Amino acid sequence: MLNSAVINLSVIKRNAENVKTALGGKSKLCAVVKADAYGHGAEKIAAALYTVSDCFAVALPEEGVSLRLSGIDKEILVLTPLSAGDEKVCVEYGLTASAASEKDVRRLEKECEAQGKTVNFHIAYNTGMNRYGADGVEEVCRIADEATKCRYAMLTGLYSHYAAPENDVSFYKATEKFVKARDIIKSYDKNATCHISASGGFLRGAHYDMVRIGLLLYGYKPFVSDAINVKPAMRVYAPVVAKRTLSVGETAFYGETRAEKPERLSLVRYGYADGLPRKRVKGQFGNRCMDVTALTDNDKRFVNVIENAEELSSEYGTITYELLCGAARRAEKIYVT
C-alpha cells in the first residue's frame, strides 16, 4: 500500500499570490519547481501556478522537458550550467539555458545553427557561494562580448544566488558584486532580466527584475521573517498496520533500544525508504526501519508524518528543503483545492 501525500493546490497558489502582491508589479515571479517541485509534483504545481507565475525554473533540462510535455509554454530557466548534451535539449525544447563561460555560449550558438532555432540564455554569476557561475565582472564582460557575435544564442539575463541572505555581511557583500555585474549587462541590453534572490533574498527585499521563489511556495520560510505569510501545502499520511505491546526491558526493531516502561507501539507503514531519515525523533521508539516506524502514544489510524517540516527538520538536524523533497517519495499524490 502506498502512503498518501495530500497536496493543496489552492494553498500553493495563495502563497504565490502573496509573493506577487509583495512585489507590487515591479518584479517578475519565477516559480521554482525543480526536484519535482520540492516533492510536490512539478507538472501539477506548474499548471496550478500558470496564471500567477511569469516563468518557471528547474535544475535540469530534463525537468524542463517534462514541463513542456505537460503543456507549459512559458519561459523555463535551467539553473544548472551546461553539461555535455544539455545544449541540444535546451534548443530543442526552447529552454532558457545558463552560461558560465564563453565556451557555453559557443556551444549554444553551434547547436542553434544545427537545429535552425534560437535560444535564450542567462549568465550564471558567482557572488560568493562558489558553486556555479562566472567569476568576476571581467568574465561576465567576455561572455557578453561573445554573445554579441551570435545570431541565434540570445543573452537575455544574468543571475546569481545568495549563500546566506540571513547574514548581513554575506548579504551585502553578494549584493554589491551582483549590482556591478547587473550594471554591465544592462549596458548591453537594458531589458535584460537580472536576478539574485530566491526565497531568502526576497524576504530581505532584494527583488530586482525577478525573484525565484521555491520554499515559500510550499509554505515554509528559510529563516524567521514577518515579510509575508505562507501556509504549508502538503501532508503525508501513513497507515498504522499493527500494534505491539512491550514490557519493561524489551526491544523492538533493530538495535538495543529498550522499553523503560510498558509501551503500546503503533507500527506505521512509513520507513526511511519512504523519504524521512532513519534517526529516532520525539514520539518514535527506536530508529525507523526501511519500511516501518514504531510510534508511542498514538491512537490514530493514519499518521501525518510531516505535520510541520520546519520543526521536524530541526529534530533531524537538517533543513526543511531536504524533508520536503523526500517525504512523499513512496506516496500517491492526491491533489485538492
Rank of each mutant, 00 (worst) to 15 (best):
K74R: 15
G136S: 07
F178Y: 08
H161A: 08
E111D: 00
T156W: 09
V89Q: 04
V119S: 09
E75D: 11
M210P: 02
K149G: 09
G94Q: 06
S187H: 11
D86E: 10
A114M: 08
K177Q: 13
K149H: 13
S199W: 14
I196A: 01
I123P: 03
L79P: 03
R204Q: 15
V91M: 03
Y172A: 07
V105H: 12
F121N: 07
D189H: 09
A134K: 01
T127H: 01
V105D: 11
S160N: 08
L69D: 14
K186R: 15
V105R: 13
S70W: 04
E92W: 03
I196V: 10
M129C: 09
F121L: 09
V169R: 14
A124L: 07
L69V: 09
D183R: 12
M129N: 10
E139G: 03
A99G: 02
P81Y: 07
E139R: 09
E109F: 01
G94F: 08
L203T: 14
R151V: 08
A84S: 14
L82H: 00
E111N: 01
D104A: 03
Y125Q: 11
Y162P: 10
N191Q: 10
E146A: 15
L203Q: 12
I72N: 15
K117M: 02
L69W: 02
P165R: 12
D104F: 00
G85R: 07
F171Y: 14
R182F: 03
K149W: 07
E138G: 11
A147Q: 12
E176K: 14
A174S: 14
K177V: 04
I185H: 07
K149V: 05
Q115F: 05
D73E: 13
M129T: 10
G157V: 00
M154Q: 15
V119K: 05
I185L: 09
R68T: 05
N130Y: 09
A97W: 02
C90L: 06
T118V: 05
R107G: 10
N120Q: 13
K173L: 13
T96S: 15
L79C: 09
R106H: 11
A164L: 15
Y132I: 09
Y188F: 14
N120I: 04
G201T: 03
